[in-house]
Design a protein around this nucleic acid. Structure first.
Length: 149
DNA sequence: GCCAACGTTGGC
DNA sequence: GCCAACGTTGGC
C-alpha cells in the first residue's frame, strides 16, 4: 500500500483538529506536483500529518485516505481563500481527497530528528529548499519513521 | 520578520 | 522557448 506525507499549517488545520472532527476534506493544494500525488492516492492509503510554518515543524500523527481524488470545490468558490479565477466547475484543475483520523503522536517528531536519520535522506521533506506539500513515503522510510515516534 | 529556494507568469 | 521578475513556502 502506498504511503504519503502531507503538510498543513497547524494554525489552519492541525492533527488535533482532525482528531476532534474524525474526518475532513484535504483541499487547497495549488501545486501541480503535489496535486498529481493526490491523484495517485487510493482509499485506505495512510499518510503522515506534518505541521509546517509553526513553532515545532514535524510529523504530528497519521491519517488515512477515505476518498480518492475529486475536483477541489474550494478552487471554484469565490469566498474561499483557495479560490482560483482560472478554475471552472466544468474544468477544475485542482483536486482534493477526504481523510480520516488515525493517530496523534504523543510528541511531534521534529524536523531536526527526521533530518538526523540517514535512512530518510531521500525524503523530499528533508531536502534543502524542498517545498513539496504532498509527497510519497517509501515503505522502508515509513517504518523507520514509525519506529522514531 | 528575514530570506533562501522554489514555482509561476508574462514579455520578448 | 528563454529568462527576469514576482509571489509563495517554510525554516529559522
Amino acid at each position: 500500500m502506498p504511503c504519503w506525507l502531507m503538510k498543513s499549517e497547524p494554525d489552519e488545520f492541525s492533527i488535533r483538529n482532525l482528531e476532534e472532527l474524525g474526518y475532513s476534506r484535504w483541499d487547497g493544494v495549488r501545486n501541480y506536483q503535489a496535486r498529481n500525488f493526490l491523484r495517485a492516492m487510493a482509499e485506505g492509503d495512510l499518510f503522515f500529518f506534518y505541521h509546517s510554518s509553526c513553532a515545532t515543524p514535524g510529523i504530528a500523527g497519521i491519517g488515512r485516505i477515505t476518498r480518492a481524488a475529486y475536483p477541489d470545490p474550494t478552487a471554484i468558490d469565490p469566498n474561499s481563500a483557495y479560490f482560483d479565477m482560472k478554475a471552472k466547475a466544468e474544468k477544475n484543475p485542482w483536486s482534493a481527497v477526504d481523510v480520516g483520523f488515525v493517530e496523534r503522536f504523543d510528541t511531534v517528531l521534529t524536523l531536526p530528528q527526521l533530518k538526523s536519520h540517514p535512512a530518510l535522506s531521500q525524503l523530499p521533506l528533508v531536502q534543502k529548499g524542498s517545498r513539496l506539500s504532498v509527497m510519497p513515503v517509501g515503505e522502508a522510510e515509513w517504518h523507520v519513521i514509525l519506529a522514531m515516534r
